[in-house]
Design a protein around this nucleic acid. Structure first.
Lengths: 219, 219
DNA sequence: ATTTTATCGATATATTTTTATCTATTAAAC
DNA sequence: GTTTAATAGATAAAAATATATCGATAAAAT
């Protein structure tokens, strides 16, 4: 990860592993809060999430949240610190392409709103799907993507198409001014340097899982 | 990650970041092979996948694959090295619980076979879904999970249920002898120490994506 | 009030992962 | 055949990340 400290901000870039854990803390803490807990120690968090308490402490430190000896962290404060840190409170609009099962699953996932992500509309090329409305989101013809993306100044695109067409869709997104792509198709996308791609790579998780299983069995 | 070198094997545990990249190389090399290429250098791989060539070289080293100066790696050999390394050639049977859109997306994903994963059957509690067949996989009543899991000696379970019931399903899996759980529900699962959980955590990817986008804009 | 205990926060250390450098090898060009 | 260029492989350095240690602090117990 590129660490850029130049510029005005006091914001030092957060290590990626930490960044990935923050949403996990967030979810956990929300649950705790719903269970009427108000404070929780990093020891407890660590135990529940199978982490080390030191790590939890360090992770939370980057959010600016601060705890109190003997009682732990004030859950609400940490939640709001994470929200600010991850930008959960400024909603980012996105467009999704590909309304197969996976696409529909994402369209229907209420949780995204919580993470500051709003899927505005979906696109497909299948005439049977165009015009349909899923979970309140309309499906447009892919040919209209650019128009909508530019009109709404959308920066984030989601690809849930079959692998074969993902690159084509990707190119179209780039041409439409999309700056970040969340790619669920099992291919590596080629993009210009100024476009970010985040791959949701199931095969990688699977590799970790089955390797662990194998090692566990061996010992 | 726990490094266990005790025991008989020459197999030193592969670093997790490397492990996660191996499937990516695999997919890329397969594509290359399909395009009739036979050799490829780590420089080329690196360029295409936005990595450093040294990293590619080191990653491939752990698979035991070996290249030739001036020509690069023999694609077929590397493919087979990765297959062996990640266990793609010994198929692991799994059961999936939760036949919502996400569950169906996974059921229908042909790619898993390539990665040595075979979803044998699906389970749900919704009477409307039980008995249905999706992509050649039958949906059973969840109450039959234990029976089937034990009879087929299944070790891996996939959870694609709503968050609210994921823990209950998880407990049931553990009770049925499942040793590894691939969890797509947005909750942290509590399991005994001898059970592995791999979370497919979309919120984590999203965090990385939107942070990168923010940092890119700032500079 | 004093002691004890749980906890955070800061600093230091260890480990892991990435990147760089240098050498050896091999195919191709001359 | 000899030279040149591209490349892997080994070793070393650097960077990033995770873990440990210790002192400070605040609540609870005595």
């Amino acid at each position: 990860m590129v660490k850029k400290d130049q510029g005005n901000s006091e914001l030092v870039s957060i290590p990626e592993p930490t960044l990935r854990r923050l949403p996990i803390y967030y979810k956990y803490l929300k649950m705790k809060f719903d269970e009427k807990d108000r404070y929780v120690s990093c020891t407890t968090i660590a135990k529940n999430l199978n982490l080390k308490s030191i790590q939890v402490r360090k992770d939370l430190q980057v959010t600016g949240a601060t705890g109190k000896p003997k009682v732990g962290y004030h859950i609400e404060s940490v939640l709001s610190a994470i929200e600010t840190c991850l930008g959960y409170n400024n909603v980012k609009d996105t467009l999704l392409v590909g309304t197969g099962h996976l696409g529909l699953a994402l369209l229907g996932y209420k949780g995204f709103r919580e993470y500051g992500l709003n899927i505005v509309a979906a696109f497909d090329t299948d005439p049977h799907k165009i015009g349909a409305v899923y979970h309140g989101k309309k499906v447009y013809n892919l040919s209209q993507f650019k128009l909508l993306a530019q009109r709404l100044k959308i920066q984030i695109g989601i690809i849930t198409t079959p692998a074969e067409v993902a690159q084509i869709v990707c190119d179209q997104m780039v041409e439409s001014g999309i700056k970040a792509i969340w790619n669920f198709a099992p291919v590596h996308l080629m993009v210009p340097a100024d476009v970010i791609v985040q791959n949701e790579n199931m095969s990688s998780s699977l590799a970790v899982l089955s390797k662990q299983l194998l090692e566990r069995k061996r010992s």
